[in-house]
Write a protein that binds this DNA or RNA. Structure first.
Lengths: 212, 212
DNA sequence: CCTACCGATCGGTAGG
DNA sequence: CCTACCGATCGGTAGG
């Protein structure tokens, strides 16, 4: 009765988590039933509970595992002695690589976290807020250091993260773009939009095209 | 018995749609029950069906209304005789304004469309694919015309759309940034990352910071 | 890992 | 707009 989870090299539960990830991304967490997951594996729904505690546990493990990967990475970047634009480039490239290698779980972490039950929900939101603040701080310092143009650091963080976080949902329908093309082009667009060019290029083409 | 919908100046059904939008964005379409919507209005769930056909109908109307607004706008832009970078700027600003003025419905159209039932689902996906192709074409022409740097048009479209589409989910927690700051900073970052600068600035800072 | 089954909740209908 | 109620499905448990 007492949830004897096999302590092996991590097998049965991993299979469940993998299938669950796939389905959570495809149909959404709420729209995915335990019976869907069980069927994808080839067992009956109640059998899942020999390996997991609850449906929520699956979501928690996905969300926090991804969040911790990002937190670990930014810590490493902060501790390095690179220039600020290099730090931002490293972080942008890490985000893109995460989207490419862990797209299902990153997508879930980005879009399904609101279904976390309450102690975890606040926890997760805190972790995200802190991450964004640390990223903002790097951009702020880069502006002070004249590496970046004068731009609102918080808006920049929002824009960068959502730009990268969104590629997954597009990528699904067409894998027409290979990983390297995607990464280099996104870096070109985002990083060079951020960098400080030593000439007032930003004012040149500012026409009266403002209103829609 | 026959769904006599009041043809008035659009009142009761609008209230339902409004409340539904709010809840669909907050909790997600699947996690929102008809009883949730009814309770938010102050009536019983079955009473909703005097004004609407089904829960799916609510989602359909939201998704297609938003999609049509974007389609109408890009048609107008295409028919104008502006330069390509102005066309892109107009479209970026329209997207940002939509996020700010219709954030709930744009969010639903962006994230909950996969729950559309089948004749509508394919329809919606087609409309989105076409929109992206038309946007790509403007960028491609702008590159040919030397207004934009050499960049993959499709990746650029994905990046621009997801950058703007993501601001909503961030904006929720902190309304610290006012609309004008948000718009000007996003345009600065995204449009200037795209524009062709008449000097090889993009190569200057390209260090060996590639691998994470 | 299964069968049998639980209370809760779902979208929606009947009928007034 | 309500009460009464439907068949279906949900996450999960009991017990082996």
């Amino acid at each position: 009765m007492a949830k004897i989870i096999p302590v092996k090299n991590g097998t049965r539960k991993d299979v469940i988590t993998k299938k669950a990830s796939r389905l959570f991304r495809e149909k959404g967490f709420t729209a995915t039933s335990m019976r869907d997951i069980a069927e994808a594996i080839g067992i009956e729904a109640p059998s899942l509970y020999n390996h997991i505690v609850s449906k929520n546990e699956l979501l928690q493990e996905i969300c926090f595992r991804i969040a911790n990967l990002f937190t670990t990475h930014i810590t490493k970047v902060e501790q390095s002695s690179r220039r600020y634009h290099v730090k931002i480039e490293l972080i942008i490239r890490f985000h893109i690589k995460m989207m490419l290698n862990e797209s299902e779980n990153v997508y879930i972490s980005d879009h399904e976290w609101r279904h976390l039950p309450e102690p975890y929900l606040s926890n997760f939101k805190n972790q995200r807020r802190t991450y964004r603040a640390r990223l903002s701080e790097i951009i702020r310092q880069g502006i002070n250091n004249k590496e970046f143009k004068k731009i609102d650091p918080y808006v920049t963080v929002l824009t960068l993260l959502s730009a990268i976080g969104g590629i997954e949902s597009w990528q699904r329908s067409k894998k027409s773009v290979d990983a390297s093309t995607l990464e280099e082009n996104m870096v070109k667009l985002l990083l060079e939009g951020l960098k400080n060019h030593p000439y007032p290029v930003s004012e040149i083409q500012k026409s009266k095209s403002t209103n829609n």
